[in-house]
């Protein structure tokens, strides 16, 4: 996990809009990725992404600028993701993850979209607690200790959730024909 510098997070805490802009630029990719993994669609993830940053700015006084920024920030992001999942009551959306990738040929775009849709379908079958850990590992590039700190869980629990999440994902992905393209 490559964090943003402490000067920016201090200015963010003090309400500097420029610091907020730096934070959005730095974390938008990972937050969008977490949104896709938790919520399943790119459209939902975009909306979620904006919501996370605005909410973080509103709650910035609760962040202690003397401490690392990421655990606080990602925890807030995950809580917002959970809220959205609760509101939606985990109703899976069919044909999700419609994505437009600029600059690719139509054929390649179609193949990529199908693959992403398969990954999204499998992720939605995982329990949210596994999805959260996988999202923090693969999107926020967090180490185990950082995930544990963010989620407020013991290291052993995080390890178990990651392993189970990974193993279940691999099995369901194989069942859904996800590995066919590599054979």
């Amino acid at each position: 996990m490559t964090g943003i510098d402490q000067d920016s997070t201090k200015r963010f805490h003090d309400g500097d809009p420029e610091a907020l802009q730096e934070i959005v630029t730095h974390y938008q990719g990972s937050i969008f990725g977490i949104g896709v993994k938790l919520l399943g669609t790119a459209e939902d993830a975009k909306d979620y992404c904006q919501d996370v940053f605005v909410h973080a700015y509103e709650k910035r006084r609760l962040y202690d600028p003397e401490r690392p920024f990421e655990p606080w920030f990602y925890k807030l992001a995950l809580n917002l993701g959970r809220q959205r999942l609760r509101k939606r009551r985990e109703i899976p959306k069919s044909g999700s993850m419609p994505v437009q990738v600029a600059g690719e040929t139509a054929e390649r775009e179609m193949v990529e979209n199908e693959r992403r849709a398969r990954v999204g379908d499998v992720l939605r079958k995982l329990k949210p607690k596994y999805r959260e850990c996988l999202a923090l590992r693969f999107e926020a590039d967090m180490k185990l200790q950082e995930i544990a700190q963010t989620l407020g869980l013991p290291l052993g629990t995080v390890k178990t959730r990651l392993r189970r999440g990974m193993t279940t994902f691999k099995e369901l992905y194989a069942q859904g024909g996800g590995f066919d393209e590599m054979q």
Partner: peptide, 17 residues
């Protein structure tokens, strides 16, 4: 699995909001 996000202008929109 994460698509290239169409997030251009997100920072400006967030700051404005």
């Amino acid at each position: 699995s994460t698509p290239e996000p169409e997030l251009s202008g997100l920072a400006a929109r967030v700051v404005a909001e």
